[in-house]
């Protein structure tokens, strides 16, 4: 956390400015601003359907906003050509929810793929790099296995080894603990922390798992209904979780989410969506 404080003076590696995205008539993101600094681990947190994945897609340049822009490593993604975007893509790695390993290749070939395609290294060197990357995620013995032979946790490790193959400056994680048991999930969290320390990368993690978020975060950004309602260091969120209700609806909403309570502003909002009017209208219609 102290790192995050130091870095606030440095220029951000990722700047999200006024990002708005609509699908059909529905606004999924509305004027999102976010700055992520070198070396920090930022958690983007929020319930299902709050726009987390959409935001991640736009930060990694696989989708484009209707308004606003994303600046990644100083480049505005809206203004890049496909070739420039591809060059930029080599500087960040992504761990997808399912690992997204290519099922027709062994684990080792998966990790080697970006090296074979984007570097001029000879096969021997590639082999060494693959072993180093697999060792980094504790998966060296699985080099010759096919993805189908791996457990969920191992797949994510292998995906992570592949994401780090080209020594990226930023690592993105999409729901790293989705579908994992608590112990494996904790191991992956430990790995994320270890990697960001060992490699000095900036990490951006999209998740709705509170335990996981609190284990790895330097800072947390909370998304709700397409807006970021709070960004702050982990300690602020911890204080909110452990403290009494504040009376401020926005903060209580975050508090409910952090604590996983079944009663609070989030559920109240769902319940108050005109149930009575609906019934009355239905009755009146007949």
């Amino acid at each position: 956390m102290s790192e995050a404080a130091d870095n606030s003076k440095a220029s951000p590696v990722i700047r999200v400015v006024g990002l708005t995205k609509r699908f059909g008539g529905r606004t999924v993101l509305e004027g999102v601003d976010l700055e992520i600094y070198p070396g920090e681990t930022m958690i983007i947190m929020g319930g299902s359907g709050t726009g987390k994945s959409t935001l991640l897609n736009m930060i990694i340049g696989s989708d484009f906003p209707d308004e606003g822009y994303v600046e990644l490593l100083g480049r505005n993604l809206n203004e890049l050509s496909e070739a420039e975007l591809n060059a930029l893509r080599l500087q960040f790695g992504i761990l997808f929810q399912s690992g997204a390993l290519f099922s027709s290749m062994t684990v080792g070939e998966n990790v080697a793929l970006p090296l074979r395609e984007h570097t001029n290294l000879d096969e021997e060197t590639i082999d060494i790099v693959v072993k180093i990357k697999l060792e980094l995620v504790g998966l060296r013995e699985a080099e010759d296995l096919m993805p189908a032979e791996l457990s969920g946790g191992m797949r994510k490790r292998a995906g992570l080894a592949r994401a780090t193959a080209l020594d990226p400056k930023i690592l993105f994680y999409d729901e790293p603990s989705a579908g994992l048991d608590p112990v494996t999930s904790a191991e992956i969290d430990q790995l994320i922390t270890a990697l960001s320390r060992k490699l000095g990368v900036t990490s951006v993690v999209v998740t709705h798992e509170m335990d996981s978020a609190f284990r790895i975060a330097d800072r947390i950004a909370m998304l709700d209904a397409g807006r970021i309602i709070k960004v702050g260091p982990r300690s602020e969120f911890e204080a909110l979780r452990d403290g009494p209700p504040t009376g401020d609806e926005r903060l209580d909403l975050i508090r409910q989410f952090l604590r996983g309570d079944s009663e609070g502003p989030i559920t109240a909002r769902r319940l108050s969506c005109g149930y009575e009017q609906d019934i009355l209208r239905a009755a009146g219609g007949n």
Partner: peptide, 16 residues
Amino acid sequence: AMVGAEEIKALEAMAL
């Protein structure tokens, strides 16, 4: 199936 397993997205993310 590759689309479903995010493999296509992964290819694009690796600039392939």
